[in-house]
Deep mutational scan, measured.
Amino acid sequence: MAAGGDHGSPDSYRSPLASRYASPEMCFVFSDRYKFRTWRQLWLWLAEAEQTLGLPITDEQIQEMKSNLENIDFKMAAEEEKRLRHDVMAHVHTFGHCCPKAAGIIHLGATSCYVGDNTDLIILRNALDLLLPKLARVISRLADFAKERASLPTLGFTHFQPAQLTTVGKRCCLWIQDLCMDLQNLKRVRDDLRFRGVKGTTGTQASFLQLFEGDDHKVEQLDKMVTEKAGFKRAFIITGQTYTRKVDIEVLSVLASLGASVHKICTDIRLLANLKEMEEPFEKQQIGSSAMPYKRNPMRSERCCSLARHLMTLVMDPLQTASVQWFERTLDDSANRRICLAEAFLTADTILNTLQNISEGLVVYPKVIERRIRQELPFMATENIIMAMVKAGGSRQDCHEKIRVLSQQAASVVKQEGGDNDLIERIQVDAYFSPIHSQLDHLLDPSSFTGRASQQVQRFLEEEVYPLLKPYESVMKVKAELCL
């Protein structure tokens, strides 16, 4: 049975990233139509530049190519590739079939990587351009969430054990800070992308030097003109047959890092959902379990974690691919890159769409948070109580021993009897502590235990987050809708 299948058929496997999760716009960027249309555009740009620099290419040939950029006979191309065992030459023939007058000058002087690699770089750039505003929107939604809850005390956790208090907004800023680093890295790697350009079979530009009869300047002009037509500021000066596969490492490393950030955020949300302090959106008709109707599973956060793990592992592909590119190139890269580049971007696209949807509907339960604080705060307040007693004339050592005994009794009630923490009640009825009984409410005010959390939130948002989001103001209103 021949390899390949009808990918629109229910009898043929289709990647869930495309069929179930990723956005239509990201799927289109990695589609065959987008790819092969870009090949034709690159052939047109090459012909236009070659004509401008004096090669015998007519206006009629150029116009014929322009008129057929979208006229792609995919069936013919597939048949040609089956016959020739070469995808680029299959599309040269297919393009030439609908451009008979231009057929002889299509791909003039070029090698397969002229269309293959340059198209990949265009796709990487455009895919990054799709991700950047999506990530900015996630940051914006979380920034709104953090600002609104900047002063809401909550129990902090280290080692997932109760620690000092923080605020809900401050905790959210930990998430935002990681995503801001990801946004900066995505922008950097996007701006650092260079075009492969017009380089020939081993990167020496020998074929173009021959076409222009040894004119170095025209060869350099050709490279520059096509690079500018493709919208790049610069091209690699040095290439082998391909652009260095280190570029793929750079791009997928940034995406993998984004995956790590999203995994951490969504894990926190899942843990908070278990504590009943916070939940992701839950639709009115949504079913959490087929057997347990009360369940409210954090399905979206779980999906993000599941896909983020996949995204983090994909960076190993370009690392290994770059390491086995012998001399000017081997074909070890080809099949692998067809999979890992598309999957990385479709996965990143999915987790950003999902995280935006989550961040637009996060639900906080202040009463649950308050109750958990009441359970733990008495123990945390013991040092403040000791200091207040010393100020009232008591002995630190005597007070410490009193607190120690009462704390152990209260802990026994919590752990052995399943009761509430009654340390404060014990202190309130103990005559030894009568000098500070009137101060206990103040000493137990949760806001006095959150330090500068709310001020940190305000400063972080104003100095770091809002300036970073400013270039994306025009796209901030787009909502994230999930079908599944």
Rank of each mutant, 00 (worst) to 15 (best):
G4C: 15
D6V: 11
D6G: 09
H7W: 09
G8H: 15
P10A: 13
S12E: 15
Y13C: 13
A18L: 15
Y21G: 08
A22T: 13
S23Y: 15
P24S: 13
M26P: 01
M26Q: 04
C27K: 07
R33P: 08
F36P: 01
T38E: 11
L44V: 11
A47V: 07
E50G: 09
Q51L: 07
Q51D: 04
Q61A: 10
Q63I: 10
E64Y: 11
E64V: 13
E70N: 12
K75P: 12
A78D: 12
E79Q: 12
E81Q: 08
H91D: 03
H93C: 13
F95P: 01
G96R: 00
P100Q: 11
A102C: 12
I106L: 07
I106S: 05
L108N: 11
L108M: 13
A110E: 04
V115N: 04
G116P: 03
G116L: 07
N118F: 01
T119A: 12
A127W: 00
L128I: 08
L128F: 07
P133Y: 15
K134W: 11
L135S: 09
D144T: 14
K147M: 11
R149W: 13
R149Y: 14
A150V: 07
S151L: 12
P153V: 08
F160D: 03
Q164V: 12
T166D: 01
T167H: 05
W175M: 03
I176F: 03
D178C: 06
D178A: 05
L179G: 05
C180N: 12
D182T: 01
L186M: 09
K187I: 15
R188P: 00
D191Q: 08
D192N: 08
R194K: 11
F195Q: 02
R196I: 07
R196T: 03
R196Q: 14
T201P: 07
T202H: 05
T202G: 12
G203W: 00
A206Q: 12
S207V: 12
F208S: 04
L211P: 14
F212Y: 07
E213L: 15
G214Q: 13
V219G: 05
E220H: 14
Q221P: 03
Q221T: 10
L222M: 07
L222G: 03
K224I: 08
K224V: 10
K229V: 04
A230N: 04
F232D: 00
F236Y: 10
I238S: 05
Q241P: 00
Y243P: 09
T244P: 15
R245G: 00
K246G: 03
K246S: 03
I249E: 00
V251Q: 07
V254Y: 14
V254A: 09
V254C: 08
S257H: 06
L258F: 14
S261L: 02
S261E: 03
V262N: 05
D268S: 11
L271Q: 07
A273Q: 13
A273I: 06
N274I: 04
L275F: 07
E280G: 03
F282N: 15
I287G: 01
G288T: 04
S290C: 04
M292F: 03
M292G: 01
P293N: 01
S301V: 13
S301H: 06
C304I: 13
V315H: 09
D317R: 02
L319M: 10
V324C: 12
Q325L: 13
Q325P: 02
W326M: 14
E328K: 02
E328Q: 02
R329E: 00
R329C: 02
L331R: 01
D333P: 03
A335N: 02
N336L: 12
R337H: 04
R338I: 02
L341T: 14
A342D: 14
A342C: 12
E343V: 04
A344V: 03
T347D: 09
A348C: 15
D349A: 12
L355T: 09
E360H: 04
L362E: 07
V363F: 07
Y365I: 10
I373Q: 00
I373C: 07
I373E: 00
R374L: 05
Q375V: 04
L377P: 00
P378D: 02
P378V: 09
F379K: 03
M380Q: 06
A381G: 04
I385M: 07
I385S: 03
A388Y: 05
M389V: 08
K391Q: 13
A392G: 12
G394P: 08
Q397T: 11
D398L: 13
D398H: 14
S407C: 09
S407L: 02
Q409N: 11
A411N: 07
S412D: 09
S412T: 12
V414S: 04
K415Y: 06
Q416L: 13
G419D: 08
D422C: 09
I424A: 14
E425I: 07
R426G: 08
D430K: 04
Y432D: 08
F433N: 04
P435N: 07
S438Y: 11
Q439Y: 05
L440A: 09
D441A: 11
H442K: 06
H442M: 15
L444Q: 04
F449A: 04
A453F: 05
Q456Y: 03
V457H: 02
E462D: 14
E463Y: 10
P467G: 08
Y472V: 11
E473Y: 15
E473C: 15
S474K: 11
V475N: 15
V478H: 07
K479A: 15
